[in-house]
């Protein structure tokens, strides 16, 4: 049972257990937190991408009596970014000594490049868990997950949760080329014609057959993952009401997945990305246009708190 204090979202210190490259641009980060509130697939954290041990004492004006302050200016500590970086939870395990959080990230800019240099044993600051979650729907026994690039991590967390709920799950993952896919091979080979197999170790661990697609055909199906998914969907004999589809990845990919599902009467949820300052619903920076009953036909919703998951039918694309 969790008590009141750990059921609240908050800022928690996290020890780095592992931070390793998994392909050309992606890293796996495993964190250990003595306490962390309950979380669900689709939620994310705001990770501070700068050292936790500084700020030096004099900056918080708490210097020891025997050492005169040196008045370091905080801006001079380093070139690390000020704001936190939103990263999805890719999985979670609860052990007697605390929670293990799994994060997969792509090193692309100032924050994530700094993160890639973090060593095991160092401490990071985690703010979360944030956002709504990918819903697990009772009367939908069959689920498909469509992930592209850095949209794959939340799909991993979700695959585990769906399998626990006894669902039939198939995953579709895409990238430009083989060594940009943030997944490990095996145990089965990837099928070049789009037949699901246990070809991605991380999904295989959740007993989820997977279809891999690369734009250049270097692994799995050649072409876009959305087309492999659409082909699979069209070949199924199930009633559309029995199916639910979840997707996270580049906007063009999610848009196409949404269109494919809506055209076939299949329920579909998308996990969107927006530039965020706070992640807590205060700054109003992360807006998404969502269809509603207002005279204008839409309202801005916040990706960080109303989302990041929205029903595909409600999203208004720019």
């Amino acid at each position: 049972m969790c008590n009141e204090t750990i059921s609240r979202r908050g800022v928690y210190p996290a020890r780095v257990l592992l931070n390793e490259a998994i392909c050309r641009e992606h890293y796996r980060l495993r964190l250990k937190l003595a306490v962390f509130p309950p979380s669900r697939a689709g939620q994310f954290v705001q990770l501070q991408c700068r050292p936790l041990t500084p700020p030096p004492d004099e900056i918080v004006t708490d210097w020891p009596d025997d050492r005169p302050p040196s008045f370091t200016q905080p801006e001079l500590i380093g070139a690390e970014p000020l704001l936190r970086r939103p990263l999805s939870l890719a999985g979670r395990q609860d052990e007697p000594d605390g929670a293990r959080l799994e994060i997969l990230y792509r090193a692309i800019g100032a924050g994530t490049h700094w993160l890639a240099g973090v060593k095991s044993g160092e401490t990071l600051s985690v703010l979360g868990p944030l956002g709504n979650s990918l819903p697990i729907i009772e009367n939908k026994p069959i689920a498909a997950l469509v992930g592209g690039g850095v949209g794959i991590p939340p799909m991993l967390y979700l695959a585990g949760a769906l399998r626990q709920a006894g669902k039939n799950v198939t995953a579709f993952c895409g990238s430009r080329t083989k060594d940009l896919l943030p997944l490990s091979a095996g145990p089965a080979p990837a099928d070049p014609h789009g037949k699901p197999s246990l070809c991605a170790a991380e999904f295989a661990a959740a007993d989820t057959p997977t279809v891999l697609a690369t734009d250049d055909g270097s692994l799995g199906v050649r072409g876009f993952v959305t087309e492999a998914f659409a082909g699979w969907l069209d070949a199924r004999k199930d009633a559309p009401e029995a199916l639910v589809v979840y997707s996270c990845g580049p906007e063009a990919m999610m848009r196409r997945v949404g269109e494919v599902c809506i055209a076939r009467g299949v329920e579909c949820y998308l996990s969107l990305e927006r530039h965020m300052a706070c992640g807590m619903g205060t700054c109003q920076s992360c807006v998404v246009k969502i269809r509603d009953e207002t005279p204008r036909g839409w309202s801005y919703k916040l990706c960080c708190t109303d989302g990041p998951t929205f029903a595909a039918k409600d999203v208004i694309w720019e």
């Binding site: 801006e75 070139a79 000020l82 530039h275 109003q284 920076s285 807006v287 998404v288 801005y300 720019e318």
Partner: peptide
């Protein structure tokens, strides 16, 4: 409020146009 994007991080700060 304004259209998205509304914020961008800059060195030691950020721009907002909420």
């Amino acid at each position: 409020g304004n259209e998205y994007p509304r914020v961008v991080e800059t060195r030691a700060g950020m721009l907002n146009a909420i």
